[in-house]
Design a binder for these strands. Structure first.
Length: 740
DNA sequence: GTCATTCCTG
DNA sequence: CAGGAATGAC
């Protein structure tokens, strides 16, 4: 048997030889004749994404001055200080807990002292607001049933603690030892005061116990002390957990309130023509002042749990009454149905929002951590570094919360944000879109993750990401599906699929959560496009392109696209807002299409990627993709053919390609990595088998000595394309293909 | 010249 | 997967 060592033969060709000699470059078009009937133009897509039906948005408002107490609470609950503030403070919950803590002997003095004993009332306010939202809102219980349950829980826990503790202490005392810090204050229900050092009475008790200590047992006493220390640690842990739980609950309570405010306000919005922010804030303030006319913001510091809950209930009642009294201006609207439905609705909304926020937050945090962990790539010109954790930035002193209003965010985010989808669509319909020489995309390759860092740095430096995701989505009126990605833009490295093409969002749940999708995104988020100057104009009105990104972009522009008149138009951000570039989903789609066609013509590609604005670069890229697909395909074929030969296969008839054979698995892994496309056509297997046999026969026949021996095979294979299902013409085909 | 394609490289 | 060179067809 001749030497068919695959590696040597595969890597042999030092000299480049064309194997496509004689293969007309119209082979693709020819294949169209074979494979496709006259195609209908699907240029008229459903351009309108889903309606902007986000009514209940969790927005922070900038109207600080007249804000009522509750609003401040709620606002701050979402603020960034959540993340940066030192752990425990004087939350309302911690006030609730105070009792418990003191009963437990103030096992962590600092804990209490950090907030409650703080002399500055501002500090207390701040803590009360910021720390209350630290917990992650996992469970969603009615905030109104929660507090009582909370108290009950606390009492129960306290009792358990005390019983256990008493038992231990008594045991110890009975033996010989004691713990200097353990106190017995079972009956102590005092609520006054904040951090209380152990009372003299306790010290006295302890001293008394100490005196009982037999001197011979000093050593074992030491051991016991350490044991007690561990117990204390355990107790502390439990207390912390408890506290966190409380904070969670309080946060839920706050969110609930916010929901209620929001839903009523959004009703107002529907009727009125005021902007969200102004409307909401005005209505909110009026109402709040009506209900709590005499309580100023500064009184927050002495708002104890009881007051808080009372006020909460009062507010809810008031809301309900207002709902009931409100004349039904619009009978068809089924929203003003009274407190119960509103309650349930709000609950559900809160639930949904919380889930969204949770996901969003964690993702954003992960991303940001990743991003900031990497040294920013040196760019010719960057914004001066801002200290994002600068205390004053987030200092809360009443009126102005530390973040920007939605509009501010819009402005500051500049290119990073998604422009108004309608604008985007409008720009896509610009008639001169066939002016290809101007509308050249920027195909940027993401070589390494540090590029991600540099991309996101500008945005990240100016705004802490945690400030953005929910407000960004909600204030901009994205439909919930689009909202799926909390930080859909460059920071996440996702080119945003157009609202036109994918109203349901580029990353549906399954896609997003599956490792494959993450992988895919990571691998292929390199696609960035540049918008033509025509289309960029209105983006530029929002914000000039980031100078810092220009160097980055320029260095990565494909040379072919170098005939741009104005390089300053290049923005890696704006390009991702519209289908002027190919997204990872497009790549995925192309790969799936490969199961049907190996040699798609450019016309074909245009039809099947109708949601992409085609130009030279896009076309080339798509063609290149398929070229790469073929490359991989043929390499696999050759490899397996040689392998078969080496394995002693004598006739090509012995070769077959089935769904569970190794060859197919390799191919499937490449084109359908997550295996979420379960409809790999039988025809593909046939073609693969034919290809394999062709390779096998050619190699066996020794044709591979001819540098262009593959040409014949290519000629055969290019005729075997089959028709790509119509569904692939739909921009949403991925969702439809992968989720049914 | 432009384009499509393959091959090679990173 | 993209960039780039080589190649041949148009």
């Amino acid at each position: 048997m001749p030497d068919h060592d695959s590696t040597s033969l595969l890597s042999r060709q030092t000299k480049r030889r064309r194997v496509d000699i004689g293969v007309k470059r119209t082979v693709g078009q020819a294949s169209v004749v074979f494979t496709r009937a006259k195609a209908t133009f699907l240029s008229a897509m459903n351009p309108h994404g889903s309606e902007q039906d986000v009514e209940c948005s969790v927005v922070q408002h900038a109207d600080g001055e007249k804000s009522n107490v509750l609003r401040k609470l709620l606002k701050r609950a979402n603020s960034y200080e959540d993340a940066v503030m030192p752990f425990p403070g004087a939350t309302i919950i911690s006030q609730l807990l105070k009792n418990n803590l003191t009963k437990n002997g103030g096992s962590e003095p600092n804990f209490q002292g950090s907030g409650l004993s703080s002399t500055g009332s501002e500090m207390q306010q701040e803590d009360a607001c910021s720390n209350s939202s630290r917990g992650s809102p996992q469970e969603c219980l009615s905030p109104f049933s929660r507090p009582s349950m909370t108290q009950f829980e606390m009492e129960r826990l306290t009792d358990e603690h005390l019983r256990a503790k008493r038992a231990r202490v008594e045991n110890i005392i009975r033996g010989m030892s004691h713990s200097p810090s353990v106190t017995l204050r079972a009956g102590d229900n005092d609520r006054e005061g904040a951090a209380q050092p152990p009372s003299p009475r306790e010290n006295y008790r302890e001293n008394k116990r100490k005196q009982k200590l037999p001197q011979q047992q000093q050593q074992s006493f030491q051991q016991l002390v350490s044991a007690r220390k561990e117990q204390k640690h355990e107790e502390r842990r439990q207390l912390k957990l408890q506290l966190e739980d409380m904070q969670k609950q309080l946060r839920q309570l706050q969110e609930k309130f916010y929901q209620i405010y929001d839903s009523t306000d959004s009703e107002n919005d529907e009727d009125g023509n005021l902007s969200e922010d102004s409307m909401r804030s005005d209505g909110m303030d009026n109402r709040a002042h009506d209900s709590v006319p005499d309580r100023s913001d500064n009184e927050m510091s002495d708002l104890d749990p009881g007051h808080f809950l009372d006020r909460a209930r009062a507010l809810i009642r008031e809301q309900s009454m207002m709902e009931g009294d409100k004349p039904k201006r619009d009978g068809s609207r089924g929203k003003s149905q009274g407190p119960t439905s509103m309650h349930a609705e709000g609950k559900q909304l809160a639930e949904t929002l919380k889930q969204e926020l949770n996901t969003a937050m964690s993702q954003v945090v992960d991303t940001v951590v990743k991003v900031f962990a990497k040294p920013p790539r040196p760019v010719p010109q960057v914004f001066p570094p801002l200290h994002m954790e600068s205390p004053d930035r987030f200092a809360v002193n009443g009126e102005n919360p530390n973040f920007h209003t939605a509009n501010q965010r819009l402005q500051c985010f500049g290119d990073v944000i998604i422009p108004n989808p309608l604008d985007t669509f409008a720009s896509m319909q610009v008639p001169n879109s066939n002016d290809q020489t101007e509308a050249l995309p920027l195909v940027v390759r993401k070589n390494s993750s540090d590029q991600t860092g540099s991309l996101s740095t500008p945005g990240g430096h100016h705004h802490h990401p945690s400030l953005h995701p929910p407000p960004l989505s909600s204030t901009m009126g994205f439909s919930p599906p689009s909202f799926r990605h909390p930080f859909p833009l460059p920071l996440m490295g996702y080119p945003f699929q157009s609202p036109l093409g994918a109203p349901t969002g580029p990353y549906p749940g399954k896609d997003r959560s599956s490792p494959e999708s993450l992988d895919l995104s990571r691998e292929t988020t390199s696609l960035r496009t540049k918008m033509s100057s025509n289309h960029l104009s209105h983006h530029r009105s929002i914000s000039p392109t980031h100078p810092g990104n220009e160097g980055l972009s320029l260095s990565l522009i494909k040379s072919e696209c170098g005939d741009l008149q104005d390089m300053s138009d290049i923005s890696p951000y704006s390009g991702s807002t519209i289908q002027e570039g190919l997204s990872p989903n497009h790549l995925k789609k192309a790969k799936l299409m490969f199961f049907y066609t190996r040699y798609p013509s450019s016309n074909m590609l245009k039809m099947f990627f109708s949601d992409v604005k085609f130009n030279r670069c896009i076309t080339s890229q798509l063609i290149k993709w398929f070229s790469n697909f073929r490359e991989f395909y043929y390499i696999q074929m050759e490899k397996f053919a040689r392998q078969a030969i080496n394995d002693g296969v004598t006739g090509s008839e012995e070769l077959s390609v089935s769904r569970d054979c190794e060859l197919f698995r390799a191919l499937n892994m490449h084109y359908n990595k997550a295996n979420d496309f379960e409809q790999v056509p039988e025809r593909f297997l046939e073609v693969a088998q034919i290809t394999l046999r062709e390779f096998f026969n050619a190699i066996v026949a020794g044709k591979d000595v001819d540098p262009s021996w593959k040409k014949a095979i290519y000629k055969v294979i290019c005729k075997l394309d089959s028709e790509v299902p119509e569904i692939f013409k739909s921009p949403n085909c991925l969702q439809e293909l992968l989720h049914e």
